[in-house]
Design a protein around this nucleic acid. Structure first.
Lengths: 347, 347
DNA sequence: CTGAAAGCGCTAACAG
DNA sequence: CTGTTAGCGCTTTCAG
């Protein structure tokens, strides 16, 4: 019933013929050039309408030697952080008629490289990427892979060492500093950190904020309270159990990312420890659900959606005005804010 | 340092020249045709390597009149359900060298239509879509928009009325039936439902499961316990408060989607009602976080990732073997399972 | 096995 | 303002 069966799709040529004009003219109305009479324009438009003409962007891209797709590469689409970031990106890209080729690397370097390869072949115009953590070490191969793309690249959240790509980051040192400083001001002295991999910039920075706060308050970092996880839930869970079974357990925990924070909360629940009473806690990154469910956990809150927005704005800018000098880098650092909900309290 | 500046990208022509062969030959090694000597093949490959040749998929697509991208259209990427679904899709598409143009419609019909338009222009090979709810009413316009695509379409979760697209759904009637039946068996007699919009199939089906369970147990549906929300958090929250302020409040709640369930839990927390004690509760759709955080809420659990996987498998199949007859539709219905965690209990 | 040449659907000079 | 024509980078007959 609905529509012809396998009738070949109309091309610009068909339209030209039916409208009694040249293909150039059709192309012109397509591109909204003003160099065409209102009258012929309307005729062409009508013919297009009638024949349900749908310009072929592939042909267009080839001819213009430029697509209107961008690549978006994230490590895990199920991490709420990236969900938000993507929302932010598309809120801008939609308006710019730029479309998103989405790649989920699963925190897997090999996959990431494969995706990058694919994305070049697809001739994406620009790339927004949060590199896999493993790539954080100085990695010439990886940098080469990115450079080979030869298109504007905007980093989000994670940096590529010794590179100078544009990027949107958050001031994690500051965020962590505030969190730990707050715990100290609440009276906690034995504060453990569940840190991320020191091989990643966020991991390092959040750890640095921790040490900074402790030292600025005239205390000393106690190695036995420093534990490294991998930013995943499981490690937050395990480390929390481990930490709380110490002879002299800390009175507060600073957990440096959302997933580990969830693991930590799970462990705390199992240990029947009441947050903000039996144990102080501040996490890094908001987890909407927690608040929704009335679980009051204080966190260092980053403007996630905004990070996506800013990244896309930089990319858009680059697309319009290519980077001229190597030094001319746009690195935006957004500031987190401390969201206090009581879990920082000391009994 | 890394790589030439703005040297034009190598084309098949360049490679041909450098390798002293024709473009046809280069194209053949590109497509791994066996109609080329091992020797020449190696030469060509070497030249490609040297010059960092990256085939232009755009040109390729135009020439073959077929791209290798698919469209994935979801209503909200921040809903964990779709996050999982997307994971499922890409677990298959990655292997098939099919890439995802992702569109987040924000449950907005207009946006959706715009995306569909864009996707045809991009000449995607196939589409996996969860239509916006507003489209659930018989909507000839919308059906036309989909039909116009003239490519394989696989629906996920939400149906398009009077259409016969392939799709992957869940047996929501059964799932809801089980949930409510379970509540009854636990001794609850006054069970309220926070239903979804009856304009959506999931909304309707989940409501039907509710009535079915009640009637099959020889009870009668009491209208005052039936409340309609919009599948969003806020409405779950509001309705819960409303329901529990009734003169004769129910002893149990069946909440028919994950977001409203969260809202409900939030409200319950505020009302200081202990779930599974002061009030019975079963939700629809797992929310990982809940379990993680030790909030024991029983739910009707659907195989989300699997739904994505199956959808992509159908699409792959369609791409390889186009649908022949109109009647030859693949509609998969996956079965939910009841995950009991105690919240269904009656004090 | 390899090359020449036409063409995919559109854009962009260049004429007129 | 409009038409002609030469590509964009690749695939695919059709000869050889």
């Amino acid at each position: 019933m609905q529509g012809g069966a396998k009738m070949a799709v109309a091309t610009i040529k068909d339209i030209a013929k039916l409208a009694n004009v040249s293909v150039a003219t059709v192309s012109r109305v397509l591109n909204d050039s003003n160099r065409v009479t209102e009258k012929t324009k309307n005729i062409v438009l009508a013919v297009m309408e009638e024949n349900n003409y749908m310009p072929n962007e592939i042909a267009r891209s080839l001819s213009k030697r430029e697509t209107n797709t961008i690549g978006v590469v994230v490590p895990d689409i199920n991490n709420p952080f990236f969900g938000k970031v993507i929302k932010g990106i598309s809120s801008i890209s939609d308006k710019e008629d730029l479309y998103m080729l989405l790649c989920d690397t699963d925190e897997n370097e090999e996959k990431e490289l494969k995706f990058l390869d694919m994305l070049v072949r697809q001739r994406i115009r620009g790339l927004i990427i949060t590199p896999t953590m493993n790539n954080d070490e100085f990695n010439p191969e990886y940098m080469k892979a990115l450079a080979k793309l030869n298109i504007p690249i905007v980093l989000i959240d994670r940096d590529v060492k010794y590179s100078n790509f544009d990027g949107v980051f958050s001031d994690d040192i500051e965020g962590s500093y505030q969190a730990v400083d707050c715990l100290i001001k609440e009276g906690h002295e034995k504060i453990a950190i569940i840190a991320g991999p020191i091989t990643s910039k966020p991991g390092r920075d959040r750890f640095r904020g921790y040490t900074k706060a402790i030292e600025m308050n005239g205390l000393a970092v106690d190695d036995k309270y420093v534990h490294y996880g991998d930013f995943k839930l499981e490690s937050g869970y395990e480390l929390t159990k481990k930490i709380l079974s110490m002879k002299e357990p800390p009175t507060a925990l600073f957990v440096s990312n959302n997933m580990m924070n969830l693991g930590c909360i799970k462990a705390l629940a199992e240990l029947k420890l009441e947050i903000g009473k039996d144990i102080g806690l501040i996490g890094f990154d908001e987890v909407e659900m927690l608040e929704i469910m009335g679980i009051n956990v204080s966190v260092v809150d980053r403007p996630m959606e905004r990070m996506g927005v800013r990244a896309m704005m930089i990319l858009k800018d680059r697309l319009e005005n290519p980077k001229v000098k190597e030094e001319d880098v746009q690195r935006i650092i957004l500031h987190p804010t401390l969201k206090l909900r009581g879990s920082e309290k000391k009994k």
